[in-house]
Design a protein around this nucleic acid. Structure first.
Lengths: 140, 140
DNA sequence: AAAGATTGATTCATCAATCTTG
DNA sequence: CAAGATTGATGAATCAATCTTT
């Protein structure tokens, strides 16, 4: 029960800080980074529907976010030829570039703000517990 | 590094769910509950400034949230007589009542969604690590 | 009618500016 | 001027409604 409070507090202390650092040093928000990274993970291209499954955001929220990423030139959009309801996304060269930089910043920050604060043993426990929590809450 | 991702995901999976349940079954949002609980913890009355220190929210965000809680009749506001810049808050009877109900709901939900998913040993580790993260990030 | 995606209305958080009291 | 608090402008997330294609 105290652990729940500490969990909330840690998130509230860490995430906005990560977000600010990422914006300042890489020019993208944490959520943008997440989306770009997921597209990359799907091989640099995927459809909105697929992204929606991978990302923690409402469908409409994702739609607007991708709109913004497209406006900024980080992804290209085109209607899927196979199923014209779908929209295909592709990382642009600029998108890949910003993603590379963001990855570097993110790796540094996660290390200093998060990973360096716990032993490998503790990290394993945190990983295990957090996964269990997600599975139980959202058995996708 | 994987633990960081799992941490984010667990938060994103759990917190909105808690928030919805709390709204539905107690009529207040998670943040509202937090604020009411903090006022209660301060003995049922405190000043905005004190709340601001205890709660994870910007000063203006807190101001608007308390405005809403006052409109809903959960807290009363009055300028502090000692220092007329300050505003004193007090839980109303209705505020105490809604807080009681929210506490019960919250306790149940934290148990089933969070605490029951880990061993006591794991809970201790999570608590310890989360506290360390907060202290390092925000050495208040 | 259902799936995929977008748009409209609303809510709520933040930063920066402002107002009042010390 | 500094401290405590509020207000204005803006950004981003959600739900519900809508549009298009299957």
């Amino acid at each position: 029960m105290k652990a729940w409070g500490a969990f909330l507090r840690a998130h509230a202390d860490l995430v906005p800080r990560m977000d600010r650092l990422l914006r300042k040093r890489a020019g993208v928000a944490l959520r943008d980074y997440d989306v770009l990274a997921q597209v990359d993970l799907a091989g640099g291209a995927c459809t909105m529907r697929e992204l929606d499954r991978r990302v923690l955001l409402s469908q409409s929220g994702l739609s607007r976010l991708v709109q913004r990423l497209a406006d900024e030139g980080f992804v290209g959009r085109a209607t899927n030829e196979g199923d014209r309801r779908g929209v295909d996304l592709r990382l642009t060269a600029q998108g890949r570039s910003v993603l590379r930089r963001a990855r570097k910043v993110q790796a540094e920050e996660v290390r200093t703000l998060f990973a360096d604060q716990m032993s490998p043993e503790e990290a394993r426990t945190v990983l295990r517990v957090m996964r269990r929590l997600s599975e139980h809450a959202d058995p996708s």
